[in-house]
Write a protein that binds this DNA or RNA. Structure first.
Length: 876
RNA sequence: GGGAGAUUAGCUCAGUUGGUUUAGAGCACCUGCCUUACAAGCAGGGGGUCACUGGUUCGAGUCCAGUAUUUCCCA
C-alpha cells in the first residue's frame, strides 16, 4: 500500500543524485542555442538565507524550463571572496587563537585566510543542492581563483593604460576601527541622539561675533572658513571680513556660498574641508586650506595642535569645557541627527581625505545607460529603468581600493613617488627601467601597492570572467551574452550597472539580454529579514519541514517581479499540500486497471477532450506569464489547473465505479497527468520526477527533467463552453443539496424549462451522461414553464427544478429568491440607465452596445422567472 | 530636502490598449461531510462605496490633478 502522504525527504536526495549522475546539469558547447545564467555569486562565507532561496529558485525554474525546451542550458555557480566580511571573520578566528593580525606578514595572513576559506567556504553551494538547483557544478568558480584573478588584474591594467583609472586624493568613508575605506553601501545611517553646540567666533578687528551650530565641535580645530548664504541679509555686512577660530586662533575668511541653509541654526556654517564631504566641495570652490586634524585611527593629529593623540569622542567632551572656559560656547541643545556607522565594526564613519584608486565612470556609463534605456537590455519590472537612469546620470567615480589583505592586491608598483601599473612585477620593472635607465634600478627598488581591490571589482567581470572572456575563448563566444540575470534591485548600482559597463568595455556587447529584479524578502510584518531581528526562518529547516518543492512553491507564489514580498511560512505549507494532492492523484490513477472489456463511455471521451482543451488554455497563460517573468502567476495557473480542473473535476468525471477502466480513457488520463508534471517540473522538480516514475514504467533515460516542455495548442471553445455550463448546473445542484442536507449520492431528478440551451443539452447524450454522473441524477428532462414542483435555480436565463422527497422550506426559498430578485433589479437598472444614454448608444462600439442589450434582456428574463417563482411559492 | 512607487475582502495579492452579466484568487472564517486518491482532504457559504476629493469620458478599480496614509531610493 502506498502511503497517503507524500514524503519529500525520502525522494529528494535520490533524484538529485540521479540527475547529477546522469550529467543532466552539465553543459558543453554544441550546435544548440545556448541559454546561460550566471549565479549572482553569494559571499563565500555565506549561509543560505531567504533571499538566496528566492533568487536561486527563480534561476532554477528558468534554467530547467530552457533545458526542457531543448536549449543548451548552462547555469554557472560560484562564490565571491567578500573581502571585508571574510577578512573580519579570519581576524576574529585568529584573535580567538591569540594571534594578532598586526603580528603577521601579509603572506602569513593570507595562508590562514585560504585555509579558512577551504574549510568553511562554499557551504552555501552545498545548501543550494538541497533546494534542487541544477547548476553545472563542474564550472564552480571563485572570484579569487586563477582565471578570475587574471581577469581582474588584466582589467585593472587595461583601464589604467586607457586613462580610465587613476589614483586620487578624495573624500572617502573611513572606518577608523577597521582602518579601511568603505563604500556607501557599507555605511548604515541611523537617527541618533546627539548635541548641537552653538559656538561663537570673534570677527577680526571688531568687537562682534558670528555664531555657528555644529554637532562635531572637535572639528573646529580644522576649520578654514565660515560660510553664509549670499542672500542672507543678516550677514551682508560681513563681506571681505574674517574671524578667529577659537583655541587655535587661526584667522579664516567669511565666504558666501549657495550651499548654506539659511534656516539651519544661525545661518552660518563652519567649514572643515578635511572632515565633511560638503565642506570639502565648498573648500574646492573657494580654494580653502585643508587642515586634517585626525589620524587614521580617529585620534587627533599634530595638525590639530590641541589634544594630540586623544580619541575624537573624548575630545568632544574636552573641547566643550575649553570652549566654555573661553566664553565661546553660547549654548548646547539636545539634537537628533543621522549618524553613519560601519556595517562591520559599528564605528562612526569618518569622512576622510585619502589617496585611493578610482575608476573614472563617465565614459563607461554612456553605453550602459543607452542600452538599457532603448531596451537592448530589458529590465523586469520595467520601472527599475528609472532608478537605473537616475544613478547613471549622476554617477560618481568608483573608489576601488580597500585597505585589506584578503583580495586582489593592486597591480601597481612604486619607485619613490612614481607609479608603474602592470600585470606583474617583472613588467612593472620593465616600465620603470625604461623610464629610469641610469639609476641602477633593481627589482628591490619597487614596492607593490599594499591595498586590495574592492570585491565588486571582481564581480563586475563575472559574466565575462566565468567564460575566460579576457582570452577570447570559444566558451565565451558560445555562452556570452547570457540569457538573463536574476538579482535583487538593491544591488542595481553596485553590481548590475557595473556588469553592463564591463560588458561594453571589454566584450563590446551586453552581458545579458534580460534582468529580472526580485523583491526583498520581508517577514509578515513587512520588516526586512535580518540576523539581528531574528525574523528570518532557517532556510534548511524550512526545507526539512515542507520539502524543497513546498518551499520553492512558497517562494514562487509570493514573488511578483520587483515588488517586495512578505514571506509567510503558510505558503510553504500550501506548497507541501499541493505536492500531496498530486501524490494522491497518482495513487488514484495508478490504482485503476485498464480493461478492454469495459465500455468506453461517451462521457469519458467528452471529459478527455475537455481536459485537453483546459490544459491548452492553462498553458497559454503559463507561456504568456513566463514571457513576462510573472512566475508567481504561472505557478498559480498550474496550481489551479491541476487542483481544480484536473483533480476536482476531470478525475471525478472519469472515475470508474470499480477499479476497471477502458484503456483509452486511462491512457488519455495518464498523458494529461504527464503533461501536468512536465509543465510543473521547473517549479517543483522533485515531486514531479517521483510521480513521473510512479505513473508508468520508464526507460533508463526517460526522466521528467529531460522531457519536452508542453506547448499550448488551439482551443475548441464551444466544447469547453458546453462542459462549463454543465459544471455550473452541477454546482447549483450541489448548492441545493447542501442547503437541504441531502446526501451527495442520493439520486435526484432534474427538470429544465425548455429553451435553446436546455434542449441542446438534452440532445447531447455525452453531456447528459456527464451531468447525471457528476450530479448523481436519476433523470434529466425538459418540462413546460408551468411545471411547479421542487426547488428552483436559475442559470443564465434558464430555469431548473430540482426534485426530491423532502419538504421544501418555503419561507427560506422566498427569502433567497427575493434577495436574488433585488440584485437582478439593481443590475437591470444600471444597464437600462446606460442604454438610456443616447451618447452611449451613439458613441460606444456596436459590440459593446449589443452586449448591453443582451445583458438587459437576460436580466429582464431572470426577473420574470424570479417574480413567477416567488408568486408560486407564496401560494403554497 | 529631492525623487520613485504603493493604497482593491480580515491577510497576501491578480485585475494586461478604459467596455466580459453592477470586482477575482489563495489563505483565514462559517456550515455540512471520516463519500473506498487525498481531513495536508471534499462540498457549500458569507465577506469589498476598489484610500479620499475633484476632473476627463457615452462609460473609470483602470487615465489626469490634488489630499491623506505608507514603503523605498538618493542627498
Amino acid at each position: 500500500m502506498i502511503d497517503t502522504k507524500f514524503n519529500p525527504t525520502e525522494v529528494e536526495e535520490k533524484w538529485y543524485n540521479h540527475w547529477e549522475k546522469k550529467g543532466y546539469f552539465k553543459s558543453e558547447i554544441d550546435d544548440r542555442e545556448a541559454y546561460t545564467i550566471v549565479i549572482p555569486p553569494p559571499n563565500v562565507t555565506g549561509v543560505l538565507h531567504m533571499g538566496h532561496m528566492l533568487n536561486n529558485t527563480i534561476q532554477d525554474v528558468l534554467i530547467r524550463k530552457a533545458r526542457m525546451e531543448g536549449k543548451n542550458a548552462c547555469w554557472v555557480p560560484g562564490t565571491d571572496h567578500a573581502s571585508i566580511a571574510t577578512e573580519a571573520k579570519v581576524v576574529q578566528m585568529l584573535r580567538e587563537k591569540g594571534i594578532k593580525k598586526s603580528d603577521l606578514t601579509r603572506d602569513e595572513f593570507l595562508k590562514y585566510a585560504w585555509e579558512w576559506k577551504e574549510k568553511y567556504g562554499g557551504i552555501i553551494l552545498q545548501q543550494l543542492r538541497k533546494l534542487g538547483a541544477s547548476c553545472d557544478w563542474d564550472r564552480t568558480a571563485f572570484t579569487m581563483d586563477e582565471t578570475r584573478s587574471k581577469a581582474v588584474i588584466k582589467s585593472f591594467v587595461d583601464l589604467y593604460h586607457k586613462g580610465k583609472l587613476y589614483r586620487g586624493n578624495r573624500m572617502v568613508n573611513w572606518d577608523p576601527v577597521a582602518q579601511t575605506v568603505l563604500s556607501n553601501e557599507e555605511v548604515l545611517y541611523k537617527e541618533e541622539n546627539s548635541k548641537l553646540f552653538h559656538v561663537r567666533y570673534k570677527v577680526s578687528g571688531e568687537d562682534s561675533y558670528i555664531t555657528i551650530a555644529t554637532t562635531r565641535p572637535e572639528t573646529i580645530l580644522g576649520d578654514t572658513a565660515i560660510a553664509v548664504h549670499p542672500e542672507d541679509e543678516r550677514y551682508s555686512s560681513m563681506k571681505g571680513k574674517s574671524v578667529e577660530v577659537p583655541l587655535v586662533g587661526r584667522v579664516i575668511p567669511i565666504i558666501f556660498d549657495d550651499y548654506v541653509d539659511k534656516s539651519f541654526g544661525t545661518g552660518a556654517l563652519k567649514v572643515t574641508p578635511a572632515h565633511d564631504v560638503n565642506d570639502y566641495e565648498i573648500g574646492m570652490r573657494h580654494n580653502l586650506e585643508i587642515v586634517d586634524v585626525f589620524n587614521a585611527d580617529g585620534t587627533m593629529s599634530e595638525a590639530a595642535q590641541f589634544f594630540i593623540g586623544k580619541d575624537r569622542f573624548d575630545v568632544r567632551k574636552l573641547i566643550e569645557k575649553e570652549l566654555e572656559n573661553l566664553g565661546s560656547l553660547v549654548k548646547v541643545e539636545p539634537y537628533r541627527n543621522s549618524v553613519g556607522r560601519s556595517e562591520r565594526t559599528n564605528s562612526v564613519v569618518e569622512p576622510r581625505l585619502s589617496l585611493q584608486w578610482y575608476v573614472s565612470m563617465e565614459k563607461l556609463a554612456k553605453p550602459a545607460l543607452e542600452n538599457v534605456m532603448n531596451d537592448n537590455i530589458q529590465f523586469f519590472p520595467k520601472n527599475q529603468k528609472n532608478l537605473y537612469r537616475h544613478w547613471l546620470e549622476n554617477v560618481r567615480d568608483w573608489c576601488i581600493s580597500r585597505q585589506l589583505w584578503w583580495g586582489h592586491q593592486i597591480p601597481a608598483w612604486y619607485y619613490n613617488d612614481e607609479v608603474f601599473v602592470a600585470e606583474n612585477k617583472e613588467e612593472a620593472f620593465q616600465l620603470a627601467f625604461a623610464k629610469y635607465p641610469d639609476v641602477g634600478l633593481t627589482m628591490e627598488h619597487l614596492t607593490q601597492d599594499q591595498d586590495a581591490l574592492d570585491t565588486w571589482f571582481s564581480s563586475w567581470l563575472w559574466p565575462i570572467s566565468l567564460f575566460d572572456g579576457f582570452n577570447d575563448s570559444d566558451e565565451f563566444k558560445y555562452y556570452y551574452p547570457t540569457a538573463v540575470l536574476v538579482t535583487g534591485w538593491d544591488i542595481i548600482y553596485l553590481w548590475v550597472a557595473r556588469m553592463i559597463m564591463a560588458g561594453y568595455e571589454w566584450a563590446q556587447e551586453k552581458p545579458f539580454d534580460k534582468v529580472y529584479f526580485t523583491g526583498m524578502v520581508r517577514d509578515s510584518q513587512g520588516r526586512k529579514m535580518s540576523k539581528q531581528l531574528g525574523n528570518s526562518p532557517d532556510a534548511l529547516g524550512l526545507i526539512e519541514t515542507y520539502g524543497a518543492d513546498g518551499v520553492r512553491y512558497g517562494m514562487m507564489s509570493c514573488s511578483p517581479a520587483g515588488g517586495d514580498l512578505l514571506f509567510d511560512e503558510k505558503l510553504c505549507e500550501n506548497g507541501r499540500n499541493f505536492s500531496n494532492k498530486i501524490w494522491n492523484a497518482m495513487r488514484l490513477v495508478t490504482g485503476w486497471e485498464a480493461d478492454n472489456n469495459m465500455v468506453e463511455y461517451e462521457s469519458d471521451k467528452l471529459a478527455s477532450q475537455w481536459i485537453n482543451e483546459k490544459f491548452n488554455m492553462a498553458m497559454k497563460e503559463v507561456v504568456k506569464n513566463f514571457e513576462e517573468f510573472r512566475l508567481s502567476e504561472a505557478i498559480t495557473n498550474l496550481y489551479s489547473f491541476i487542483w481544480n480542473d484536473f483533480c476536482s473535476w476531470y478525475l471525478e468525471m472519469i472515475k470508474p465505479n470499480e477499479n476497471k477502466i477502458h484503456p483509452n480513457t486511462l491512457n488519455t488520463c495518464v498523458e494529461v497527468f504527464e503533461n501536468c508534471l512536465r509543465a510543473l517540473h521547473p517549479f517543483m522538480p522533485f515531486v514531479t520526477e517521483e510521480i513521473w516514475h510512479q505513473l508508468r514504467e520508464r526507460k533508463p533515460n526517460e526522466d521528467c527533467m529531460m522531457q519536452a516542455y508542453p506547448h499550448p495548442k488551439e482551443v475548441n471553445e464551444s466544447l469547453v463552453k458546453s462542459v462549463e455550463n454543465v459544471k455550473e448546473i452541477i454546482s447549483k445542484i450541489r448548492e441545493v443539496r447542501s442547503k437541504y442536507n441531502l446526501k451527495m449520492r442520493e439520486e435526484l431528478d432534474l427538470y429544465a424549462v425548455q429553451s435553446a440551451v436546455t434542449s441542446q443539452l438534452l440532445d447531447n447524450a455525452p453531456l447528459v451522461e456527464l451531468l447525471k454522473k457528476m450530479a448523481y441524477l436519476k433523470t434529466y428532462g425538459t418540462v413546460g414553464d408551468t411545471h411547479s414542483d421542487g426547488v428552483v435555480f436559475i442559470l443564465g436565463k434558464d430555469k431548473y427544478f430540482v426534485m426530491f422527497e423532502q419538504e421544501i422550506d418555503v419561507e427560506a426559498e422566498i427569502e433567497s429568491k427575493q434577495k436574488e430578485l433585488d440584485y437582478q433589479k439593481g443590475f437591470v437598472k444600471s444597464v437600462e440607465s446606460k442604454l438610456g444614454n443616447e451618447k452611449f448608444v451613439n458613441n460606444a462600439p456596436p459590440a459593446v452596445v449589443e452586449n448591453e442589450r443582451k445583458k438587459l434582456a437576460d436580466g429582464q428574463e431572470r426577473i420574470r422567472i424570479l417574480e413567477d417563482e416567488i408568486d408560486r411559492l407564496k401560494k403554497k
